[in-house]
Structure formats: structure tokens, C-alpha cells
């Protein structure tokens, strides 16, 4: 039968009470949200650091994926979401392939970025891609020099994508409207004076 874990000494318990780890910024729901969006059991992380050791961004910046894993476990929501290093992950998945606990630190980062966006924390290059795709269906649209090159190759000047069939763009716009993505991107960029 399970018993309450303690030293059986009320005086010692009282002395230790305020020495258990406690952080007033911690939000236990943050851990749950990250695990749900990232579809990985982040709280199983035992901080071995294999992730940071595998990370191409770590040697050239202060970005430490292990630190973000710790923040996920401890529920340190604002510390994680406001850190500009959050956006230095190239999503190469080396850490995910090497994690000895079979976790997906990369997807923890993706989950945190999704949560940051809900608080309007997002670098503007991400929003500009949204606007570009909303307008043309492409994140990297065609241009005149490329049209000329395509024609020379015997390809159609515009590829047979939304470029050649713009009637498909409306469907893409409807999907983005469903999630208010375009509206939010426009609003955040205009608030930043872009």
C-alpha cells in the first residue's frame, strides 16, 4: 500500500517545506499544452544534453534546446516564449533522432512557437510568408526572369500550380480565413509598422 513520502519527522518536514523547488512563474498547463501540440512526452526529459550536443545552432548562438526542454518540464511559459532563441531551431530533427528517451525536442520547439504566435510573438519573416502564400499560393512566387528561363526549357512560363490555375487560390484563402491566419498576420505586421 502506498504511503505518503516523508521523513516521518514533523520538525524536519517544516524545515524543508520552503526549500522544495518552487517558481512563481511556473504554469503547469504550459507543460500539458506543449505535450499536446508537440505530441511528445516532454516531461520525460532527464536533461542529458544529447539534444544540445546534436544541434547545429548551439555552437554559434546562445540557443540551447536542453534549456527549452527544461522550461517545458518546469512550465516556465513566459521564459520560453519570450526568448528570441526560440526561433533559431532549423528543425533539422537531429536531436529528435538521437534522444535517448525517444522524445521529440524539435516538436517541443514547434509547439512553443505555435503558443508564442497566439501571444503575437513572432518574427516578421514568418508573417510575410503567410501574406505571400495568401496572395499567390506560393511562398516563393514566380518572376519575369524565371518565366523567360522556363519558356526556354520548354516548360510553361508559369508552372501548373496556383500560378497557372489561380482559381485554386480562393480555396487556400478560405483555409487561412478559417484560422484567422491572414487577419492576424496583417494585424501584427501593421502594429509593428510594416
Amino acid at each position: 500500500m502506498a504511503t505518503v513520502k516523508n521523513y516521518g519527522d514533523p520538525q524536519l518536514e517544516e524545515k524543508l517545506k520552503d526549500q522544495y523547488f518552487y517558481n512563481s512563474d511556473a504554469n503547469p498547463n504550459f507543460t500539458k499544452e506543449v505535450e499536446k501540440i508537440g505530441d511528445t512526452l516532454a516531461h520525460m526529459c532527464f536533461q542529458c544534453g544529447t539534444c544540445t550536443g546534436s544541434c547545429p545552432s548551439a555552437p554559434r548562438s546562445s540557443y540551447r534546446i536542453r534549456r527549452f526542454m527544461r522550461r517545458a518540464v518546469m512550465g516556465l511559459e513566459m521564459e520560453a516564449l519570450t526568448d528570441p532563441d526560440l526561433w533559431l531551431c532549423t528543425t533539422c530533427y537531429s536531436c529528435t533522432d538521437r534522444c535517448p528517451r525517444d522524445l521529440a525536442p524539435t516538436d517541443v520547439i514547434m509547439a512553443m512557437r505555435n503558443l508564442a504566435f497566439k501571444l503575437d510573438i513572432v518574427p516578421k519573416n514568418f508573417l510575410k510568408t503567410v501574406q505571400m502564400i495568401y496572395t499567390s499560393g506560393h511562398g516563393v512566387p514566380n518572376n519575369d526572369a524565371n518565366r523567360a528561363a522556363r519558356t526556354k526549357l520548354g516548360l510553361t512560363a508559369d508552372p501548373p500550380t496556383t500560378h497557372m490555375y489561380p482559381e485554386f487560390i480562393e480555396g487556400i484563402q478560405k483555409i487561412m480565413h478559417h484560422y484567422d491566419l491572414k487577419e492576424n498576420a496583417d494585424r501584427i505586421l501593421s502594429e509593428e509598422g510594416q
Partner: peptide
């Protein structure tokens, strides 16, 4: 594949909202 669009970019779109990424 007529009418295909941006895949959409997993880094750019997935980072912002995974639900939009799935749908698109």
C-alpha cells in the same frame, strides 16, 4: 498536379499554426 500550392513551408507555417499547415 494542377492547382498545387506551396506545400506549405513546414518551418514557416508549422511554426505559426500547425492546424493551418495540416489543412493546406
Amino acid at each position: 498536379l494542377k492547382g498545387g500550392s506551396c506545400c506549405p513551408a513546414p518551418g514557416a507555417f508549422g511554426s505559426i499554426d500547425l492546424n493551418v499547415w495540416y489543412a493546406m
